[in-house]
Design a binder for these strands. Structure first.
Length: 567
DNA sequence: GCTGATGCGTC
DNA sequence: GTCGGAC
DNA sequence: GTCCGACGACGCATCAGC
């Protein structure tokens, strides 16, 4: 019996060593080989845990459970271990740019004063982390941070580094599903396409890896599309304008509105409807109105179809900003009441399965035709995504302009004979969105970065003018090259007027041109507005003054009047 | 009972 | 969602 | 082309602390 136990457990230390090796190389093939070797020597009983841990997960993504730990909770745990307050730990965090490294240091200092240590096994660490996830109610914060502190205290320094990163959901070892998939291929001598296939239809790494080990290609191939089980969505690449879109997907192409809503995968089986989000979370409860509309207007026994749920104003029949739809997304209470206040219309655009037949390999044209047969259009409830098929650039451009006038994001351009490729951003379809008129804003603050940006001020607080004073309008942290992060950090450091934790305030000198998708009303920023998807376009060293709030208000109003035109 | 902090999922 | 970097 | 990591705003749920 004892013998059996010995062969069936694995020390967390071994996993930590693997993490470190993965950390050291940037080469994907090396990463693959390291993981493949490790998987081969992992006992079957630990394999499900190991594969999740390698992917930085505690629960399979299909699970509804979450850990409920992020940076502030880790700070609390580290504070418990050291007896230092959270500010002191934050200062170390700022220097190191990685809470995992902070935990490692904390544990290293502590172990010098303690005597013996028991070894942590992989399943034990998993068990504790899952237990942490399940604390709820009164004092749950104490319990969570207490358990984490205890776990870290019993870990070796290197283990603490990776347990912390796992708790934060940010392993930072450059490993995602692509590399894990290739490692499974190598370790268990199976075909890449079969592993990918099983993942596309189940998204459960634990199930997948056992299948690969136990039943090989045959088992993986047998994993099939099932109504009620979500499959990974096809994603679309970005094209620069209509003309570029045609070169990418060919002409003629199907061109559809890109609605500003939420993507929904709808499963029908024996009169039951289940709705899934892009991350494959079940949101059936959140959208009872949609379930009802689908039951009424989709005529089939079994099917899977996909669409975009868009919120509108029931009185004026105007689309409303995405923020409003957002009120329904994570809702658990007063669902029916809000569903009446914020109705949604579903624009369906693809059909993946119908009456026992998997349509994924059928050309898009045919899938759309099936959709048109099965869905009985009902205005403001269930409609087909507006579409034209054309190879004519002018016609496409007019359709695109029309979509923008109706305040949608732009258009999708889809290859007519393309199959449905789950889970990848393959070039069978592209999205085309406009570039809006950029804003010139001044940097008034910054935040020290994490991980590969740990040495830089890497997120910048932006302000506009509001009369004689400045007013904040959000943060920006993308669009810069590494060189530019370095440069901005050097230029901002002498301008720092105040530091609090990882955040600094700076004299307003640096003006930047900022691109974005939309101006939103903001409850957070003093200007009353914020930018959706802000990014750096270029530095404006020729300017000293940022744009005035009046200009921002004007652009905001223009957006609104555009959306009203379509009503 | 209310408010702010924190975590998490949508885009 | 956006973007840059590495392969 | 593909994968990965480092980030944005918002709104909801939950919990701590008053």
């Amino acid at each position: 019996m004892k013998q059996k136990t010995l062969t069936n457990t694995m020390d967390y230390q071994e996993l930590a060593d693997v993490y470190e090796q993965l950390d050291k190389t940037t080469k994907n093939l090396e990463k693959r080989d390291i993981i493949a070797d490790f998987l081969k020597r992992t006992p079957k009983s630990e394999l499900a845990n190991v594969i999740l841990f390698l992917n930085g997960e505690i629960f399979p993504s299909v699970s509804e459970e979450v850990l409920g730990i992020a940076d502030k909770m880790v700070l609390k745990a580290l504070s418990k271990i050291t007896g230092k307050n959270e500010n002191a730990i934050t200062n170390v965090w700022k220097e190191k740019g990685d809470l995992g490294l902070v935990a490692e240091q904390v544990v290293k200092k502590k172990t010098q004063t303690t005597l013996s240590q028991e070894k942590l096994t992989i399943s034990y660490v998993m068990e504790i982390l899952r237990a942490i996830a399940r604390f709820e109610g009164e004092n749950s914060t104490q319990k969570k941070t207490g358990s984490l502190a205890k776990l870290l205290s019993s870990a070796k320094p290197k283990e603490a580094r990776y347990i912390t990163r796992t708790a934060l959901g940010d392993l930072r070892i450059g490993v995602g599903f692509g590399i894990i998939r290739d490692a499974i291929v190598k370790a268990f001598n199976v075909e890449k396409e079969h592993v990918q296939h099983a993942y596309d239809f189940r998204s459960d790494l634990s199930e997948l890896v056992l299948l690969a080990k136990e039943s090989g290609n045959k088992g993986l191939k047998n994993v099939d599309l099932k109504v009620g089980k979500p499959l990974r969505l096809m994603l679309y690449q970005k094209a620069q304008g209509i003309s570029n879109g045609f070169t990418r997907v060919g002409a003629p192409a199907a061109i559809e509105y890109k609605y500003d809503g939420m993507r929904v995968q709808c499963h029908f089986k024996k009169g039951e409807v289940t709705l899934f989000t892009r991350r494959l979370d079940d949101v059936t409860k959140q959208f009872p109105d949609l379930v009802g509309a689908l039951k009424e207007h989709v005529s089939c026994k079994e099917c899977i179809l996909e669409g975009e749920a868009v919120a509108y104003n029931s009185k004026t029949k105007e689309y409303v900003p995405f923020q409003i739809l957002g009120k329904r997304i994570k809702r658990k209470h007063r669902i029916d009441e809000i569903a009446k206040k914020i109705p949604v219309v579903l624009y369906v655009f693809d059909m993946l399965y119908l009456e026992g037949k998997n349509l994924l390999l059928e050309p898009f044209k045919k899938r759309r035709a099936a959709l048109e047969r099965i869905v009985r259009k009902k205005a403001w409830q269930v409609e087909l995504a507006k579409q034209v098929i054309t190879g004519n650039e002018d016609k496409a451009q007019r359709f695109y302009n029309e979509a923008l006038e109706k305040h949608q994001e732009g258009v999708m351009m889809k290859k007519l004979d393309a199959q449905y490729q789950p889970g990848s951003r393959v070039g069978f379809g592209v999205k085309v969105k406009p570039i809006l008129e950029p804003l010139d804003l001044v940097i008034t603050g910054a935040i020290w970065g994490e991980g590969k940006r740990g040495k830089w001020l890497s997120s910048y607080v932006l302000s506009c003018k509001k009369g004689d004073v400045l007013a904040e309008i959000g943060k920006m942290a993308t669009g810069l090259s590494e060189e530019q992060f370095e440069e901005v950090t050097k230029r901002l450091e002498p301008l720092i007027t105040k530091t609090s934790g990882k955040r600094v305030e700076v004299q307003p000198k640096l003006v930047v041109e900022v691109g974005y998708e939309e101006i939103q009303k903001s409850p957070t920023y003093s200007s009353g507005f914020a930018l959706r998807f802000p990014r750096l376009i270029r530095f404006r060293d020729d300017k000293e003054e940022p744009d005035d709030l009046e200009r921002i208000k004007r652009i905001y109003q223009d957006q609104k009047s555009l959306s009203q035109k379509q009503a």
